[in-house]
């Protein structure tokens, strides 16, 4: 079955050192049931492939413009004159009319600097295992391995489970970065092949969670309890989002929940909000549409340190990324 099974991957990141122990490769699967406004990988949200466009790489129609005639939908045209972010020259980048674009990717064949690229590539399990196994010497020397992330990787459950299983057969340490928002049956299938769960907790109040991320938190919390009960090893990841979950009360509630999971929790990681995602929205949505991403001042070091102290006061081991 695994020969025909494919997963949709939107990125593979080598020398990933923030996603679990040692030197790792992180594989990002496309598609997510949540719509967190602070999401720094907006290209991870939809399940289908999307055309991505990076202004920094686009040479402009003066020098290139190869993509324009390649589009069967006439969705690409010269945009307004702007200053190029790298060269500083006045250029007219191309503009993708998202209403016309059907993400077919025909334009990418002419885009040599890879400003236009299809985000979302199908891999078979063996192809992907082959790709990530290239760095096995680094995993072995560093106690690292492979992290499967997303989107929500368990939204492609058959592929994710098969991939994790093959990695374990190859002797590679596995970590799974998850929102927790999938049926527990899927976790049960992944658990035997997953050495470590990087488990996101965003808010303890289900209403707040639902209003902001689009889904309630009961299933997420329930799955965390069950995983702990069934022998899963957890690193809890808490994004610190201004005006959402950065109050002492919110963090204390999250800490209390982590404590209730007992020894299964190896570490709590605070991930302070940053606004790098804002730029990435422009790659897959019309830059002029705007308003898709949360734009806020990142928490200060002092604010994060105060939250860290609260969790540590609850007897939890904490790191800040």
């Amino acid at each position: 079955m695994t020969e025909t099974l494919t997963g949709k991957v939107y990125d593979i990141q080598g020398f990933s050192i923030q996603d679990g122990p040692g030197i790792r490769t992180t594989v990002f699967l496309k598609g997510c049931p949540l719509r967190c406004p602070w999401c720094h990988s907006p290209e991870s949200q939809l399940f289908q492939a999307q055309l991505s466009w990076m202004a920094m790489r686009c040479l402009g129609v003066e020098k290139c413009g190869n993509c324009i005639p390649l589009c069967p939908k006439q969705a690409i045209s010269p945009g307004k004159a702007v200053q190029h972010a790298v060269t500083g020259e006045d250029v007219r980048h191309v503009r993708v009319d998202r209403a016309l674009c059907d993400n077919c990717g025909a334009c990418t064949a002419g885009c040599h600097p890879k400003a236009l690229a299809i985000c979302g590539t199908d891999y078979t399990v063996e192809e992907l295992v082959g790709r990530v196994s290239k760095d096995k010497p680094f995993y072995d020397h560093s106690g690292g391995g492979v992290t499967l992330s997303g989107g929500e990787p368990l939204c492609q459950p058959d592929f994710a489970v098969a991939f994790l299983g093959r990695l374990k057969e190859c002797g590679i340490h596995t970590a799974l970065d998850t929102t927790g928002y999938v049926p527990y049956e899927v976790f049960e299938r992944a658990l035997p092949h997953t050495d470590l769960f990087l488990y996101d907790l965003k808010h303890m109040k289900s209403d707040d969670h639902r209003i902001v991320t689009g889904v309630p938190n009961e299933l997420i919390l329930e799955n965390a309890r069950k995983l702990s009960r069934d022998g899963g090893r957890l690193q809890i990841r808490v994004p610190v989002i201004p005006h959402f979950n950065d109050s002492p009360e919110a963090i204390e509630a999250t800490g209390a929940f982590c404590k209730s999971l007992g020894d299964a929790v190896e570490m709590v990681q605070l991930l302070p909000y940053h606004n790098l995602g804002v730029m990435k929205y422009q790659r897959i949505y019309d830059p002029e549409a705007g308003g898709k991403a949360l734009e806020a001042a990142p928490p200060t070091e002092g604010e994060v340190a105060a939250l860290k102290a609260i969790l540590e006061g609850q007897g939890l081991p904490v790191t800040v990324h």
Binding site: F15, I17, S142
Partner: peptide
């Protein structure tokens, strides 16, 4: 930022060691 933490430093050392082993 790659080396701002103790674990970052350990990972750099592992990176060099792997290169040397190869």
């Amino acid at each position: 930022t790659a080396l701002s933490s103790e674990s970052g430093k350990e990972k750099l050392i592992a990176l060099i060691r792997t290169y040397f082993a190869m």
